[in-house]
Design a protein around this nucleic acid. Structure first.
Length: 419
RNA sequence: CGGAGCGUAGCGCAGUUGGCUUAGCGCACUUGAAUGGGGUUCAAGAGGUCGUGAGUUCAAUUCUCACCGCUCCGACCA
């Protein structure tokens, strides 16, 4: 891919009103664009990151037997009245009347919709368990949006739902999701803290949150600097309380971003919406449900919060929009060898399975270097006269800043060895 | 939803004690030239309902009011 054809509108200056590093870099690196408060467009580069994360999520969901589907975001309010959540979530629900006078809402979550769907098809214990997921836009009327895409009115969520015949089945699926979540966040290059949590408006009894400590966020965790013990604010009440595990240090309050939340819902929805099945013994029973959410757009923000420097983003390998960026430093098409070499590397590296971006803009080296640091592609190939006179090309690691000079014929081989 | 601040070109900002005749600056953009390893330089351009509406006034981008929008703090939040 060539920069001139990809649409990467980078910003030289920090946009006003961007407190969070991730918010600032998302805008500056041309990943997202704000339409209005809490509503963002994903530009090609940002969408590419989103797709990489989604791919990881899909692989791990499929690996635990969850099947993807796609639910509507337009919901009849009638459905929500069955569970009473039209009241519980009244503050965040975006409601309106359509042209036919129907009361509708934009889905803030999908328990009601999935339950309505599953109950129509699943009638027997023989059909259970059923585990379904989607990656979908959610709508919440947030009065106070914060930190760019961290707390937005419209955002992307992966939500999965399990339906089992009994509690044992639920626990098994819950455990599978629990492990899948650990893998997903690890593959995204994130260290998560897992906390037992409140079920809140979702209902049910067991629930876990997956948090990433960051300099910004809307949640807090209590951390022990000595043994690593951590807890939500529901555990030890005192912020400065002695660590209940090692008793060597006092707990400190740490701001964190909540990326995932899983719930053992039980029968809350199946009872309210009459999602029953006939069990082996001929008895009509409510399905036992679980639900499992990941704030996909929020994952992007968390990754940037955790992986950047003063110059820009540093993408972890698994989620980077491109694997390699090639910088031909040439005077507007005047240096044929450099231009040719850049396109040859592009073709051969693409052939070798890399996702490659060539900064083919007719711009000064300074701007190309700065933009390259900003968008944070892990590996950079710099082709310039300076080294080419000795038959050399420079390869630079974005994270370590490490630079190696390689023979211009060895570039593909050297980069392939990094894969 | 309470408190505070802000709204002038794509972005970041000056400015107007109400009139100064054609509202500026930096970056970005267009054209030309030079440069070509860390946001290079020079020249010439293009780009504006001064957030919206009403009021006061001979005259409003400037004053007053209302509304809209954005940001921050708080409340809220799976």
């Amino acid at each position: 891919m060539y920069w001139s054809k990809f649409f990467i509108p980078t910003l030289k200056e920090d946009p006003i009103g961007t407190e969070a590093v991730s918010h600032r870099l998302l805008l500056r690196a041309g990943l997202v664009h704000m339409l209005t408060s809490g509503v963002y467009s994903y530009l090609p580069l940002g969408l590419k990151v989103l797709r990489r994360i989604e791919r990881i999520i899909r692989e791990e969901m499929e690996a635990v037997g969850a099947r993807e589907l796609f639910l509507p975001c337009l919901h009849p309010l009638e459905l929500w009245k069955k569970t009473g959540r039209d009241q519980v979530l009244a503050d965040v629900m975006i409601k309106f009347q359509d042209g036919r006078g129907r009361s509708m809402c934009l889905g803030p979550t999908h328990e009601e919709v999935i339950t309505d769907l599953v109950k129509d098809f699943v009638k027997s214990y023989r059909q259970l368990p059923v585990v379904l997921y989607q990656i979908q836009t959610k709508f919440r009327d947030e009065l106070r949006t914060r930190f760019g895409i961290v707390r937005a009115c419209e955002f992307i969520m992966k939500d999965a739902y399990s339906f089992d015949r009994d509690k044992e089945g639920l626990k098994k699926n819950y455990q599978l999701m629990f492990e899948a979540y650990k893998k997903i966040f690890a593959r995204c290059g994130l260290d998560t803290l897992i906390l037992e949590a409140d079920s809140g408006a979702m209902g049910g009894d067991v629930s876990h949150e997956f948090m990433v400590p960051a300099s910004i966020g809307e949640d807090h965790v209590l951390l022990c600097p000595s043994c690593g013990f951590h807890s939500g604010l529901h555990g030890p009440k005192e912020e400065d309380g002695l660590c209940p595990q090692c008793r060597k240090a006092t707990l400190t309050k740490q701001v964190a971003i909540e990326l995932g939340h899983i719930f053992q819902l039980g029968t809350k929805y199946s009872l309210a919406q009459e999602a029953y099945f006939l069990d082996e013994d001929g008895q009509k029973k409510p399905m036992i449900m679980g639900c499992y959410g990941i704030g996909v757009s929020r994952v992007i923000a968390a990754i940037i919060e955790k992986s950047h420097d003063e110059k820009g983003i540093i993408w972890p390998r698994q989620v980077t929009p491109f694997d390699i960026e090639i910088l031909p430093l040439h005077a507007s098409g005047q240096d044929e060898e450099i231009v040719t070499l850049a396109s040859r590397y592009h073709d051969e590296l693409t052939q070798a399975g890399f996702d490659v971006l060539v900064d083919d803009r007719e711009d000064t080296p300074g701007r190309k270097f700065n933009d390259a640091d900003l968008i944070g592609i892990p590996l950079r190939v710099i082709i310039g006269r300076k080294n080419l006179v000795n038959g050399k090309v420079e390869i630079k690691n974005r994270q370590t800043q490490e630079v190696i000079l390689v023979d211009k014929h060895e570039v593909i081989k050297t980069l392939s060895s990094f894969l």
